[in-house]
């Protein structure tokens, strides 16, 4: 296949690379051998991994914001502690993942600056609002559930430093998911008002979690570099199906109605109808579902989602507000003599 077939995402972006080295590199990947720092790699692979780890790190840093909004209002000491620890974990994951990209050639500061100026992206799901405590439960249950499914496959990837980081991160994601499951179970065992709030939050997040895995795969996804080089392990659609197979029956057992919703520009639901496709196909073992609105997905990715501007503003505020501290720490230090 030729790179010219698709100028946006060239199928073999390896022009000018040594064909013997490239063949050896690809053979290693086929054999399931991990790539380690110091190994020869095609420039497109280096740039691809850098961008992937950077996007992942950006998502952790921005992902800290919607839940962070609710730390001040968590309704018990244990929930307050857990939510703080969870958001803190996300900052930690961002820090570790930025390091993977730093090793591949980009400074942390450049990455943070590219994030707040919109030059680089972060995961789309963080551009949606979390207007109630129920949304916090949904983010931790559905979105973290989806993240674990995705990251579990990424830990089977080929790039050693990313894989090691992913294994470490997944250990903590288990806490996030369990804490979310506990919240959902508590709320759905609770009062009528709590159940109503949680159903409404479920309506806001179900389609977002379906979109979490990205748009439908191209038919030749396996031949494209991302999968051929094991930067990405599983097709978006197959991950999405696994997610639905696990969460649709769980949601129904908990008493949720799985709805197809229309939303306004703020991300609030304006109308609902039950998703009649959401039934188990006993032949395939798969649960059906209505495809999310991919027009909405691309609109939000292009920067026109309900919360894009707010998220980036708050992140930029944090960056600019912290600048004097970074400067002072770089200047000061333990060896400086006492100030006059």
């Amino acid at each position: 296949m030729s790179g010219a077939a698709n100028p946006v995402q060239p199928l073999c972006p390896c022009e000018g690379e040594d064909p013997d080295k490239l063949a050896e590199f690809e053979q290693r990947i086929t054999d399931g051998v991990h790539i380690e720092p110091g190994d020869w790699m095609p420039e497109a692979y280096r740039m691809g991994m850098l961008g992937m780890a950077e996007h992942h790190a950006n998502s952790e840093i921005i992902g800290a914001l919607p839940e962070g909004e609710w730390i001040t209002r968590a309704p018990s000491l244990r929930r307050k502690l857990a939510l703080t620890a969870k958001v803190q974990d996300e900052v930690g994951h961002g820090q570790m993942l930025y390091r993977v990209s730093q090793e591949l050639g980009k400074s942390r500061d450049d990455m943070l600056r590219d994030l707040i100026t919109g030059k680089t992206k972060y995961h789309n799901c963080f551009n949606y609002p979390a207007p109630t405590w129920g949304d916090i439960a949904m983010i931790q249950w559905l979105i973290d559930g989806a993240a674990i499914m995705n990251q579990k496959t990424l830990a089977d990837g080929a790039y050693g430093p990313y894989v090691r980081t992913m294994n470490r991160i997944n250990m903590e994601e288990a806490f996030h998911f369990k804490s979310g499951e506990d919240m959902v179970l508590t709320l759905m065992s609770g009062t009528r008002k709590q159940k109503k709030m949680t159903q409404e939050a479920f309506d806001r997040w179900w389609s977002v979690s379906l979109m979490f895995f990205g748009p439908h795969d191209k038919p030749d996804a396996e031949q494209r570099p991302a999968m051929r080089w094991r930067m990405k392990i599983e097709r978006n659609d197959s991950l999405r199906q696994r997610f639905v197979n696990r969460f649709a029956p769980a949601a129904k057992d908990l008493g949720f109605t799985i709805n197809v919703c229309e939303k306004d520009d703020r991300g609030f639901v304006t109308s609902v109808r039950e998703d009649e496709q959401c039934v188990l196909d006993t032949d395939t073992g798969n649960w059906g579902f209505t495809d999310p609105d991919w027009n909405e997905f691309f609109r939000v990715i292009r920067g026109n989602g309900p919360c894009n501007a707010h998220r980036l503003d708050l992140r930029r505020f944090s960056y600019e507000q912290g600048r004097w501290v970074r400067n002072a720490i770089a200047k000061g230090g333990t060896t400086t003599p006492p100030a006059a």
């Binding site: 806490f175 998911f177 369990k178 506990d182």
Partner: peptide, 17 residues
């Protein structure tokens, strides 16, 4: 509060509803 195991028991008993 910051480990999955801190929730396992509660989750299990709540699921039984």
């Amino acid at each position: 509060y910051k480990f999955a195991r801190g929730y396992s028991k509660g989750v299990r008993s709540k699921w039984s509803n």
